[in-house]
Simulated scan of single mutants.
Amino acid sequence: MNVLINVFVALHVIGIAALLGGFMTQMKAMGAGTARMVPAMLHGALTMLVTGMALVGLNQAEGAAVDNVKIGVKLALLVVILGLVYVKRDDERVGRGPFAAVGALTVVNIFIATLWT
């Protein structure tokens, strides 16, 4: 079971990397006002959602304690990120506010995952 959990953790990290990497590639364009939500951001957020739910289920099945408040906060942030990315995915240009919000919420989600114990 530990191997399966570790595989899902690795996939979760890949999802985070895709979301944050997609944001980082568009930061220069954000300064010019031509940023857009790239497909990697949507795919990364969806990967985070699916693997995160799988991780919660696997950890509970193994009998490990799961901090439901932490998971709820992370899920709420991810739903907002997914909403912003999904709604703006076809726009040729995305405003600085929504685009910066995706990046900021992603970083906050990472800090919650690593610092909230």
Rank of each mutant, 00 (worst) to 15 (best):
M1A: 12
V3P: 01
V3S: 13
V3F: 02
V3D: 15
L4R: 03
F8Y: 13
F8I: 01
F8E: 02
F8W: 02
V9C: 03
A10K: 01
L11A: 09
H12W: 01
H12C: 00
I14H: 06
I14Q: 01
G15D: 06
G15S: 08
A18P: 00
A18W: 08
A18Q: 00
L19P: 01
L19G: 06
L19A: 13
L20F: 12
G21R: 02
G22M: 04
G22P: 07
F23W: 14
F23E: 09
F23V: 14
M24E: 06
Q26K: 08
Q26F: 00
M27R: 15
M27W: 12
K28C: 03
A29Q: 14
M30G: 04
M30E: 12
G31E: 11
G33D: 12
G33Y: 11
T34A: 13
A35C: 08
R36D: 07
V38Y: 06
P39N: 10
A40S: 15
M41K: 07
L42G: 11
L42F: 07
G44M: 02
A45Y: 00
L46V: 11
L49V: 13
V50E: 05
T51P: 10
L55K: 01
L55M: 12
V56G: 08
V56F: 04
G57H: 05
G57L: 11
L58K: 14
N59D: 08
N59S: 14
Q60F: 09
A61F: 10
A61T: 11
E62F: 05
G63T: 15
G63K: 12
A64H: 09
D67N: 15
K70H: 11
G72S: 06
V73D: 09
K74H: 05
L75H: 00
L75V: 15
L75I: 13
L77D: 11
V79P: 04
V79R: 03
V79Q: 05
V80G: 03
V80W: 09
L82D: 02
L82C: 06
G83K: 13
G83R: 13
G83D: 11
V85D: 02
Y86Q: 13
V87L: 09
K88Y: 14
K88M: 12
K88L: 13
D91I: 00
D91W: 09
E92P: 01
R93K: 15
R93H: 12
R93I: 04
V94N: 02
G95L: 04
G95V: 10
P98C: 12
A100F: 12
A100S: 14
A101K: 07
G103T: 08
G103Y: 01
G103M: 07
A104E: 04
L105T: 06
T106V: 00
V108P: 01
V108I: 15
N109Q: 05
I110G: 04
F111P: 01
A113V: 04
A113Y: 05
L115E: 11
L115H: 05
W116P: 05
T117E: 03
T117I: 10
